[in-house]
């Protein structure tokens, strides 16, 4: 599961970088049609669906309390006083 989540995040990063690259390239050379072709449309669909899925995963983790932020939780154990 951990591997799948890591893979999902890597794929999302790759897709987002690809979309940014296409946006920049399209600005330089619109005749190459980097944005409006069928492959990019397919990738955009994939990106959107995976981002949605990733969002749901994160939300589920937050709701169930599995999502850990950087803050340390206060321990319920009483402090030892030596």
């Amino acid at each position: 599961m951990r591997f799948l989540i890591k893979l999902l995040q890597a794929v999302l990063m790759v897709l987002s970088i690809m979309m940014m690259i296409f946006l920049v390239l399209d600005g330089f050379n619109p005749t190459m049609n980097f944005l409006r072709n069928d492959i990019t449309k397919g990738l955009l669909w994939l990106f959107s669906l995976l981002a949605l899925f990733d969002g749901l995963l994160v939300m589920a983790a937050v709701i169930t309390g599995r999502f850990r932020t950087g803050k340390k939780k206060h321990s319920h154990r009483p402090h030892r006083e030596d």
Partner: peptide
């Protein structure tokens, strides 16, 4: 993964 994806895209595009 990014490099492979971009190369694959370029090939098909």
């Amino acid at each position: 993964l990014l490099a492979v994806s971009l190369l694959t895209f370029a090939w098909f595009h």
